[in-house]
């Protein structure tokens, strides 16, 4: 893979730049970052930490590798976390405590320090026009906040569909209150009862004459991504593109270990450096 040029945003220029697309990601480095916000969001926890460099370089759909700072060797490795949002010098991540590693990170308190490697990976490609259909499931909604902001800044019309198992998870829909989202829960406790795949066919209609086809952006559990990929490939509207962000176990995050691979048409591809965002049609479902 060729080296990509760094294009850091000048610090403190006072202007709110548009969120950048994936074409010019910045260089990654390991940073020691102070936690400045830690609060529960239903089943998840929102953690924000200070890192001007990553905030300046990060693109929607990119991720960071995060662990506690310090010499403790258990948990041993950092965990990949999608970048939920960025501020002028802040990075936010949303954590679902599922195991020892994510549980410890979710317990981070204000003032704690995190070792953060990033920004990493290829994020969403924002070059196309046409209506954006953003589909998130469970903790997979996390990176869609920065994506939605970037698309809004580009003036793209958007439909935002967020799906959860239960009320606890659906609390994270509140993080998207700047956008007009539709919420689905499997148990019907919040929003409509059902899966996010149900409203999707209705979003993928032929565009008005001369307009570009809709584009789907999705992040969530494997079965959801698989359903989204199938529905959009079978929708019959020419030119519909589907970008999916996959989640896998990672060790290095930088392309060294080959542990995070997913099956693509031409063989395995690395989620860390060739993804985590892929065109759905590149992958084997």
């Amino acid at each position: 893979m060729a080296a990509r040029p760094a294009q850091p945003r000048p610090a403190g220029d006072g202007k709110e730049d548009a969120v950048k697309g994936r074409e010019a990601p910045g260089p990654a480095a390991l940073h020691d970052c102070r936690v400045v916000e830690s609060r529960p969001v239903g089943a998840y926890r929102l953690i924000s930490f200070v890192c001007r460099e990553i905030a300046a370089a990060a693109r929607p759909g990119q991720f960071v590798m995060v662990r506690e700072s310090g010499p403790a060797l258990d948990p041993l490795l950092p965990r990949p976390m999608g970048i939920h949002d960025i501020g002028s010098d802040l990075i936010s991540i949303l954590i679902e405590p599922v195991g020892k590693g994510s549980g410890r990170l979710a317990a981070s308190k204000v003032g704690d320090r995190l070792a953060v490697l990033g920004p990493l990976g290829r994020g969403f490609d924002l070059q196309k026009k046409g209506q954006a259909v953003i589909v998130g499931g469970g903790i997979g909604v996390s990176p869609l906040k920065l994506l939605a902001r970037a698309l809004a800044e580009r003036g793209r019309s958007m439909r935002l569909i967020l799906g959860f198992k239960s009320r606890d998870q659906a609390a994270s829909a509140g993080l998207f209150r700047d956008f007009d989202g539709e919420v689905f829960t499997e148990d019907g406790s919040v929003g409509s009862r059902g899966l996010v795949s149900e409203p999707l066919p209705g979003c993928l209609l032929p565009p008005p004459e001369g307009e570009p086809a809709p584009e789907v952006f999705a992040c969530g559990p494997g079965p959801m991504l698989s359903a989204v990929a199938r529905i959009s490939s079978e929708c019959g509207v020419p030119g519909v593109r589907t970008q999916v962000s996959v989640a896998t176990h990672m060790a290095c995050g930088v392309g060294s270990c080959q542990g995070c691979v997913v099956a693509a048409a031409g063989g395995y591809v690395k989620a860390c450096t060739e993804g985590p965002v892929f065109d759905a049609e590149e992958l084997k479902w």
Partner: peptide, 20 residues
């Protein structure tokens, strides 16, 4: 070599299991 079918990684106590 394509390598093994994923998952290929799992963290254990102060250790890492791999089957690349």
């Amino acid at each position: 070599r394509e390598g093994n079918v994923p998952p290929r990684l799992y963290e254990t106590a102060a250790g890492l299991l791999n089957s690349i």
